[in-house]
Structures are given as structure tokens and as C-alpha cells.
Design a protein around this nucleic acid. Sequence first.
DNA 1: GCAGGATGGTTCAAATCTGAACAACAAGTA
DNA 2: TACTTGTTGTTCAGATTTGAACCATCCTGC
Lengths: 151, 151
Amino acid sequence: MTDTRWLDDREMAAWRAFLSTSHLLERRIEEQLKAAAGLTHPQYEILVRLADAPGRQLRMTELARDVVVSKSALTYQITRLEQAGLVERATCPSDDRGVLAVLTEAGLRCLERVAPGHLGVVRSYLIDRLTRDELEVMTTAMTKTEQALRD
Amino acid sequence: MTDTRWLDDREMAAWRAFLSTSHLLERRIEEQLKAAAGLTHPQYEILVRLADAPGRQLRMTELARDVVVSKSALTYQITRLEQAGLVERATCPSDDRGVLAVLTEAGLRCLERVAPGHLGVVRSYLIDRLTRDELEVMTTAMTKTEQALRD
DNA sequence: GCAGGATGGTTCAAATCTGAACAACAAGTA
DNA sequence: TACTTGTTGTTCAGATTTGAACCATCCTGC
């Protein structure tokens, strides 16, 4: 049976604030990235994950899990990024089914060009407004939930 | 000029955790609402805001701002909810341009039926995993960012 | 080896979101 | 009153997302 307890005022305030903030911030980020580089936020995140990965490449499935999008959405976005010359597809040596998404030099340069402006937004609206303690608490709170959701 | 400072490890961990968690939770909520009632999360939020509003009605623009969606997305969703009989449109007495979205009885019953399961998800993955202190800190942190983003 | 079930990636249709353009009305000013 | 500017909600085209269906490939146990 589902738990039917409602949320009390404190809990509801927390949930509402979290929900609104995540959506508002998402919109602001989307707006900034579009204006600065014609990128969407998922596209930017793909570039970031690839840049961080060893060999600047990742399997499609792992990349989809990291960025938190469906496999089909990733297929679509990788195709778009490939057309833009920022990513290439490569066959996976260890698994013939596999596809590797590889960051190109142009992709890396694009990321380096765009990252400062993007991080400026993240900073100015979120990170720089929090004390060190608040930052720590938020990380532990978010991490607990993330772990639970990743099964 | 844009601030070009990078994020240090702590800051990056916080941002990554926030980003992943919000996306994962969004997916889980979407899944639960679809299975339980055939509703999307924005649709559910529209019903909630209307149920809370005096007279169970709100102007389109105000509703769009509350739920954090574009005006056109709201127009689309209100039309959908109208077709489902959960919401009705009414003319605004004080402004001939205005449109009021009004929650119907069926809409209210639907919300009462769906809310427990939805809140169960919010609780089990987020709220119930946080201590009271963590809850408080998260609320203040999110509220600061929300205020900044709402200009 | 090989059947049977899991996994990886793509394709497809359907739904949804956004921003720009638009039309109707409001509100202030000369 | 007439003009100008701002607001409201809708429509529209285009981009993106999701889940289901699908095929190819892997892997395990016999």
C-alpha cells in the first residue's frame, strides 16, 4: 500500500522550493546556452561527460545514464552533435553491438569556450549564494536521493 | 565580463548531485503519475495550484508562472485538461483579455485520488531521507536561488 | 556448440515544449 | 479623444523527448 501521509508545511515548502528552483534554473541555463553557443543543456552535458571520460569517449548506454536521458533521446542528440562536428561515432572494439561517442577537437574547443559562461550562471544563481555548510548539506541530501533513485 | 572561475571539487559535486537528482526524480515522478492516472507532472502541478487557489481558479499567466512553463505550453495543457473534464476555461470579469482556468469537481476528485501516490514518491525518495536540519537548509538554499531567478 | 534470455542501439509515432508572431484589449499621456 | 505602449492568451512551426518495437549481438548453462 502506498503511504498516504500528506506533507506538513515544512516539508511542502521544501518540496515546492526544490521543484520551482530546479525548473527555473533549467530554463535560465537553457536560455544562456542557446544564446552563447546554440546548444541545449543536454547537449552541453554530453560534451562535459565526454570531456571527463578517459579517451574522451563513452558508450552510448553509459552516457545516457550519466546525463539522465532516454537511449532514444541520446541517439538523437549524438546525431545532432555529429552533424555539428562536435562528436563522432566509433565502433566499440570489445562489443560489436556497442557504439562509442567520441569528443572531437572541435567539440573540446567548443566546450572550453562555452563552459565559463555556463558556470557563471550556475555560480551566480546557486553556488555563490550558499554558504560552505549549505553546500555540504545539499550535496549529502541530493546524493542520498540520487542513490535511491539509481536503484 | 563573465566570471570565469571554475567550480572546485566541492562545488562541482554539489552541482552534479543537484542536477542528476532533479532529473532522476522528475523521471520517477512522471512514471508514477502516468501509471496511476495518465497524467504528466505539469498537468498534476496545474491541478495542485488550482486546488490551492481561492475559488479554485487562476489566470493563465499567473498559473504559468507558478508551474514554471511557457504560456504556450500552458495553453496546450489546459486544453488537454479541459478535454479530460478536469479543468474549465472561464472569462475573466475584470479583464476582457483574461482567461481563468477553473478546477472542476472531477478535477478535484482526480487530484485527491492521485495525490497520495504522488506524495508517496516524493517522500520515499526525497523528504523522508532528510533530517529536519537538512530539510531546513535545503529550503533556505532553494528559496534563495528561486528568488534570484524570479528577478 | 547452441538454444534462450539479456543487452545495446536505432527507428518510429506520438506527445510535449519553446519562442516568435499575432490579435485583442488595457492603461497612461497629450 | 486619439496615440502609444504594454499585457494577455492563442496559434504556429520547429525541435526535442519518451516508450515501444525491432534487430543484432552477447552470454550463460546445458
